[in-house]
Simulated scan of single mutants.
Amino acid sequence: MGFTGFLIAITIVCFLLILAIMVQNPKGGGLSSSFGGSQQLGGVQKTTDFLDKSTWTLGGILIALILLSTLAFNGSGSNDSKVLGDDVTIPPVTTTAPATPQAPATEATTTAPVKTEEAAK
């Protein structure tokens, strides 16, 4: 089952979960209170138990489908981005290393005696 199949299954489970929650009455009456006493055929007194169990089951199925859908998602390392489109190109980032300055050359220089006026006389 591909990612699209998981999305369809998650949507169906969500709608069923919404229906199961909307049928329940928050104060405990729910669907079973609208049918009257326990004399009814078909076991209407067990309706609240069924709705409670189906809500928990659908919630568990929904969590499992969401976790399994991450395994089917294959969009994490591909270059075909759906957000940018195919016509957008991203220029490569270029960095230039700073030029290192040359160290001054240390030559052995000899100093000649400086002639001064007094020494010249």
Rank of each mutant, 00 (worst) to 15 (best):
T111Q: 12
S38Q: 04
T70F: 09
E118I: 00
I8A: 12
T95P: 03
T109P: 03
V93L: 09
P92G: 12
K82I: 06
I12N: 15
G2M: 04
Q39K: 14
V44D: 02
G29L: 02
S54D: 00
P101Q: 11
I63W: 01
T89V: 13
Q24L: 01
S32V: 04
S76P: 12
I61G: 01
G28R: 08
L68I: 01
N74S: 10
L16R: 13
L67V: 13
G75M: 06
T96F: 07
G77D: 14
P104W: 00
A9V: 05
V13K: 00
A105I: 02
G77Q: 14
A119C: 03
A64D: 06
T70R: 02
T55C: 00
I21E: 07
V83F: 08
K121G: 02
L62I: 01
L17K: 05
W56G: 06
T96P: 03
A119V: 11
Q45L: 05
P104L: 08
S34L: 11
S76M: 07
G60E: 05
P104D: 05
V114Q: 13
T111L: 08
A105W: 00
F73N: 13
A120R: 15
M1C: 00
C14Y: 10
I63Y: 02
I61M: 00
I90R: 14
T100I: 15
S33G: 13
K121M: 01
S81L: 11
Q45P: 09
I63T: 03
K27V: 09
K82S: 13
I8W: 09
L71D: 04
F15I: 15
L71S: 07
K115Y: 09
I61L: 04
M22S: 12
V44C: 02
L41R: 11
K121D: 04
T70A: 04
F50W: 06
T47N: 10
T94H: 12
S38L: 03
A119E: 05
S34Y: 15
A72R: 10
E118R: 01
S78P: 10
E117H: 02
T94G: 03
L51G: 04
E117R: 03
K46Y: 11
L71Q: 06
